[in-house]
Design a protein around this nucleic acid. Sequence first.
RNA 1: GCACGAGUAGCUCAGCUGGUUAGAGCAGCGGUUUGUGGAACCGAAGGUCGGCAGUUCGAAUCUGCCCUCGUGUACCA
Length: 468
Amino acid sequence: MVKEKKIKPSKETPSGFVDRKEKELLIRDFVISNIKEVMIKYGFQYLETPSFEYTDSIGKFLPDKDRPGEGVFSFKDENKWLSLRYDLTAPLARYVAKNYNEIPKPFKRYQLGTVWRNEKPGPGRYREFLQFDADYIGTKNPIADAELCLLVSEILEKCGLTKEDYIIKYSTRKITDELFEFMDESKSQKEKEINSPERRLKILRSLDKLDRLGWPEVKKLLGKGRKDKSGDFTEGADLSEQQLFKLEQVFNPENYREMKFPGTKPASEEGSQRDLIQFRQSLEAFGFKNFDMDASIIRGLEYYTGVIFEVNLNFDVKNSKGQVVQFGSIGGGGRYDNLVNNFGNIDCPATGISIGIDRLVYALMQKKDFDIKPTRPVVICVFDNVKIEEYIKLLKLLRESNISSEIYPGEGKLKKQMEYSNKIESPCVIFYGDDEIKKGEVKLRNLKTGEELSIKIENLVNEIKKLL
RNA sequence: GCACGAGUAGCUCAGCUGGUUAGAGCAGCGGUUUGUGGAACCGAAGGUCGGCAGUUCGAAUCUGCCCUCGUGUACCA
């Protein structure tokens, strides 16, 4: 009598994890097939590394806490901490260090794989996503950096974007390195602290936001701090007026194209100017023009050592409610000449680029109307007075000709079968009841036009092929 | 993490300042048509009003805490 209420398991996916439907998956497949084509053309090897790595290989060391640092999903296996990989670059460095004697030098590999980040999800940003990585290991040649940008742009354009839709912005970490050295020549003790690693990182991260926030806001972050739209306050880097003024000379958008400040190393020495010139010349040598120097490109990762780049979209991305949303870049990378060295005493320069495939797909779906349609089966309707063997004969006939087809898989009347076929967007249904069997023909109903034809069984395959 | 906003049927939402059995549209189910979908009409069903506690004679509505989602911000080795 009384309805018993059971507490049911949640039907929600965990925060930051999403179900992906066929339309998105098909476009993703399309993107992936483009990637593979381009990578083969550029001469890269295909590699796969495991989803889990030892936590210390991923980059964070185990603090004396129960769980390793935030940002990764980890668990303890026996006595070792394992983590789901956070990116594909650290595992690659690990792989290279492990197989250093066997791999060719330089080593070019690409990889497609899911990565996991234990962070707060944002628009188009999930805690599980597909990443594409292409890397050059064991070369300092600036052509390698240029080719990475080139190959990514080729992928984007294969996917249907035009030169107007994206731009590759670049800079080099050496700009800030040199700048910090220069600023350190200031007198006061407080100002000297600018070169402490934490302080430097904080400043770099603030500068990284230039494109999004603009100089006036970034200035607040470098100084006392800043209040965001919601009223939340972020502590600043607390630089002196003097230091702010110096930074402004370089990073105020009106100035920062001129990357020359006292302390800049001349192009004749290894340093920022030479990096930038060589990189630009390499791109130009390929005839590639869709790039722009932008000193605000800094990137959050600490391991970068030289040229860095980012792939930015030039169009607005909206969420499901139609609001324009802070989408950020869809990919980026740069030189990390010391990373492999972390795993062993191997001096091994490297450079790489990665694309967030799911984010690219998300943006692509808004920019482009894809006519990628899922293949849907021809449905053979079931009349309950006809033996199943008759239907199986028809089914075999169709499947032998590679026609996607099925016998109506449920139970129910014709009406229900029609509704089903309509819902799955089947191209056509087949009626094969007593009347048809007697005449040795079938009725073929085109579900788009509603047109219905009587067809001899011998002609069935051909008639259906005409419809598809 | 921090800030702001939101959580009512499978989905999209209404329900204003607390007041009888909580509503609509769409979807789903059944029927009008037991051999014909995408249209229409009819009918029935579907809800611990995110959770817990409190205020009150009385809470979807007010208060507190928690959870989840969204946006911004921080973080992103």
